[in-house]
Design a protein around this nucleic acid. Structure first.
Lengths: 132, 132
DNA sequence: CTTGACCCTCACATTTGTGTGATGGTTTGA
DNA sequence: TCAAACCATCACACAAATGTGAGGGTCAAG
């Protein structure tokens, strides 16, 4: 597919698809006329990239961890240098931290919303009772 | 406490503490000489702010959700405008999305690490066996 | 063959969170 | 009293992700 379709299906500006390619996050084949030609799997990949970016990971790190996230992970062992493993462990820990932080705060928001909504409900009931 | 102590205890450059204040995320009293004077609770608050920033939330949003995260949430009901509630629900959902994305990817990294480490272990055993 | 809808590259701009340093006031201890 | 270690404001700089648009090809439909 061409960049327009990938853009639509991932809800991502073309500009950013080119940017991700420049950063080495995705790869595009080229049609004879120079147009980018994307394989189907890039749809999921781009969505994944955007999710990670939105969760605070910079492209530099995403680039490093992406290769480990594909199914046939049994294949590449040679590229697992000690530094790479250290990086992965570190990023895994940072992600766990983020998850804890987000969870804690989301639950607080949820609790707040519950309280407020419940209060609204009570207020509505009281008003109905008064009106009738 | 003054800015230096808060900086040390939160592991945050002074520059950023001033920035967070400028963005309305924290408030500082002023000593007669103009020095910022922070209350104790700002330590936790700053740590929380940094966590959220690291998880991809911009200061604008953090500012909006912070007021809902303090214990005496029973107090403020009046400030719960419908738009505010909508914002909170929206951000809560976005945070859940981030959590799912991070969890999925962290688990994938973990699985990869397990595979690689196990393989290393096996290789080490084989070599030992061969050597002896 | 032209028009409209694609695509390309290049380049400059903006926002956000940070880094860094200049310039200068306050406080504390030798 | 003077130096060191704080603090203040201000301002310029920077990286990363993203916006925007100019200038110019390609291609299919009318």
């Amino acid at each position: 597919m061409r960049i327009g379709e990938l853009s639509e299906r991932t809800n991502t500006p073309r500009r950013l698809l080119r940017y991700y390619e420049e950063q080495g996050l995705i790869v595009a084949n080229r049609a004879p006329n120079g147009y980018r030609d994307y394989d189907e799997y890039n749809v999921d990949r781009v969505i994944q990239i955007r999710g990670l970016l939105d969760a605070g990971l910079p492209t530099r790190i995403i680039k490093q961890i992406l290769p480990c996230l594909n199914k046939p992970r049994v294949i590449h062992f040679s590229d697992a240098t000690p530094e790479m493993i250290a990086t992965l462990e570190h990023e895994r820990d940072r992600m766990s931290q983020r998850i804890r932080c987000l969870t804690r705060n989301r639950d607080a928001i949820e609790e707040y919303l519950q309280t407020v909504l419940e209060n609204d409900r009570r207020k509505a009931e009281t008003e109905t009772a008064t009106a009738s």
